[in-house]
Design a protein around this nucleic acid. Structure first.
Lengths: 151, 151
DNA sequence: TCTGAAAATGGACCTTT
DNA sequence: AAAGGTCCATTTTCAGA
């Protein structure tokens, strides 16, 4: 992982379709060297995946909701069960297990409030280990990326 | 936007390097039809971009921090200035403008607590419109995607 | 939908440090 | 050994009929 790799990552995080010869020109390496480095970083899972980023609105997902979930008990198997239910819910885009007053922070995508209300039943009310949860509605997705700084 | 498109999106959100002939087999369309649909969805910004997802740990970004920021005044130009400072900070991966007690929720990536402490100065303490902020440290990134449900 | 050209990827092989 | 470069085969994309 050197300066070449970091520069390449900076570019492909923004656009993974830049051809390898152009990447080579940008960082001053041959096409083949670029190819080898990208392949290595993929194998080593430095690059997790190349993925399409879909605009939620175009599929009707107009609401982003952030939920802070507080657990009743911190018992490992109970927390694991909660994690699992969040993991398998496609509307839960992100889930972080955090320190502090609440235990989980979720980023959710839903079509409308009805859909969210229904999901709260399955995810929170029907789970006895959920003590309480707080709902924050996003009015504006100011910045939404998974970019990692490369400096 | 029909069922074919949704199925395609479901696949390319997970892996955008699946060749178009395989996509065709998966959804029962010809390679050319797949090509046309993907191109159209890119032009219409249903697909925002194809991007590499980088593993933060491999670049030393071992800490994910969630910050709830409360603004002093809701005056538009003051809020805009705050947004701008979050937008241009590479360690701020995501920023949502929300309803409720706090005004912004940030997802940040930092190498260590020192880096975060330094950033709080530039982002929060030196901004007079930041009334207070609450820091939640992520112990575990249970699920981190930008996936949009396709059902 | 099929065919074929253009482009991009990725392996073989050689050279340099 | 480790990494770069050139050349070439294969794969993939994408436009025309």
């Amino acid at each position: 992982m050197d300066d070449f790799d970091r520069k390449l990552l900076g570019i492909v995080q923004k656009d993974a379709l830049v051809p390898q010869n152009e990447l080579g020109e940008a960082v001053h390496l041959s096409t083949t060297a670029v190819n080898r480095r990208l392949k290595k970083m993929s194998q080593e899972k430095i690059i997790d995946k190349i993925a399409a980023v879909v605009n939620p609105e175009s599929l009707g997902y107009n609401l982003t909701i952030i939920v802070e979930v507080e657990a009743q008990s911190e018992q490992i198997n109970l927390l694991d069960a909660m994690k699992k239910s969040f993991l398998k819910c496609p509307q839960v885009q992100q889930c972080y297990y955090v320190t502090g007053e609440c235990d989980f922070v979720l980023i959710m995508l839903v079509r409308n409030m009805d859909e969210y209300t229904n999901l709260t039943r399955a995810l929170f009310f029907e789970n006895n280990n959920v003590k309480k949860f707080k709902t924050l509605v996003a009015m504006n997705r100011v910045k939404v990326t998974l970019d990692v700084p490369v400096d």
